[in-house]
Amino acid sequence: MLKIAQVALLDYESPGGMEVHVMNLAKELNLMGFKVDIVCLKGNEKTKLRFVPFSEFDFHEYDIIHTHGQYGGQNATYRLKGKRIVHTYHGVIVALLLARGAFISLFRRYYSWLIAKEAIGGLFAHSVIAVSDSAKKEATRYYGVFPSKMTVIPNGHSMYNANGSRGEKRKLLRANYGVKKHDFTFLYVGRGEDPVKGINRTLQAFGEINRKYPNVKLILIPGFPEKIYDSVISTGNLFFEDARDFYLLGDVLVNSSYYEGFPVTIPEAMAAGLPIIAPKVGGITEIVKDGMNGILVDKDCQGLVGAMERIYTGNQFRMKLMRNSMETSKEYTWSKIAAKTAKVYREILKTGNKPK
């Protein structure tokens, strides 16, 4: 049994995209017969996964060390000690900063240190995974990682497809949150405190739509502790395996990020049958096809307003997007993502290189 260390020093009790990625990948790899430990700052006792605090991490015990993002700073040491290393780029910090217009931040000590650790992660790995073609190009451009040792493996979902319980769950959830039968709901999933996620643009666009169509609501997961106004509902933090049900609250997923590597929320929402409204940034354009399973917009509020109104008022158009979203999601299950990752593991154990 191969023993894998997934290294991402995060708090898994309040998971974001990278944490969700690591936990779902670990879960599927365990089912495939691997023994996976998640090396963390703080684990999540509600899961059946194995968490190891970084202070107790002994890398000598593992066949493969799989680091993520800026948590690959020790990869030079691991490689010198003879360990096989895989590193995943979930996005590139330099590109994120540039997307925010934070050019000056590149010279600040904090960001310089994060950038150095993220670069080391890929440069000293035997094989590198990027969650999108966009992230692959960024890692090559900014960090000099050779494209020949990189494999694109996107984020996935563990959602069920349509079944008998789906309608009942949706009805119960909507009743619990005060959503009426004829209300139309836009769903936003992301950390509101992170300026890169652009939640203020979603709130501004929704405000314009809500003034014109009073029966629309915006559901924020997790949202904010304080109430914004009556038509905006916050769910609060959710256990990551329960969160998938909450996509059933929505009719459309809205993403307003300034930068994304490949957001896990999009395949999750598609598996729930939601059309996607999202900006043309990063890996989003690799899964959202304009007019087929969603609408791609520019990074401005009016683009969001137009897309929200078009989907709300166009029943047949919306139904087409829903069908195509569910069809797209079939290629992004975590079982398929884990199988591709396992292939990378087996190849580097044989050759030290990425798979052909």
Rank of each mutant, 00 (worst) to 15 (best):
R109I: 08
R109W: 10
Y111H: 14
L114G: 04
I115G: 02
A116E: 10
A116M: 09
A116Q: 02
I120V: 13
G121T: 01
F124N: 07
H126A: 07
S127Q: 06
S127G: 11
V128Y: 01
I129T: 03
I129V: 15
I129Q: 04
A130K: 01
V131T: 08
V131P: 05
S132E: 02
S134P: 00
S134E: 02
A135E: 08
A135Q: 10
A135T: 15
A135D: 07
K136G: 03
K136C: 02
K137T: 09
K137W: 05
T140F: 07
R141F: 14
R141M: 14
Y142A: 09
Y143F: 15
Y143Q: 03
G144Q: 11
V145K: 05
F146R: 14
F146C: 07
K149Q: 13
K149C: 06
K149I: 09
K149D: 11
M150R: 01
M150C: 10
T151Y: 04
V152R: 11
V152Q: 03
I153G: 08
I153D: 03
P154K: 05
N155R: 08
G156H: 12
H157N: 14
H157K: 10
S158Y: 14
S158P: 00
M159Y: 10
Y160E: 15
N161T: 14
N161C: 05
N161I: 09
A162K: 13
A162I: 15
G164F: 13
S165D: 15
G167R: 10
E168I: 15
E168K: 15
R170L: 06
L172W: 12
L173H: 08
L173N: 02
N176H: 12
Y177R: 02
Y177A: 02
Y177M: 00
G178H: 05
G178W: 06
G178A: 09
K181F: 07
H182P: 00
H182K: 14
D183Q: 07
D183E: 11
D183T: 04
F184H: 05
F184G: 11
T185Y: 02
T185N: 11
F186Y: 15
F186V: 10
L187K: 14
L187V: 10
G190N: 07
G190R: 11
G192Q: 03
D194L: 13
P195I: 13
V196W: 04
V196G: 04
V196F: 06
R201Y: 08
R201W: 06
T202K: 06
A205Y: 05
A205R: 10
A205F: 03
F206Q: 06
F206S: 05
G207L: 01
G207I: 00
E208A: 15
I209G: 00
I209M: 13
I209W: 03
I209D: 00
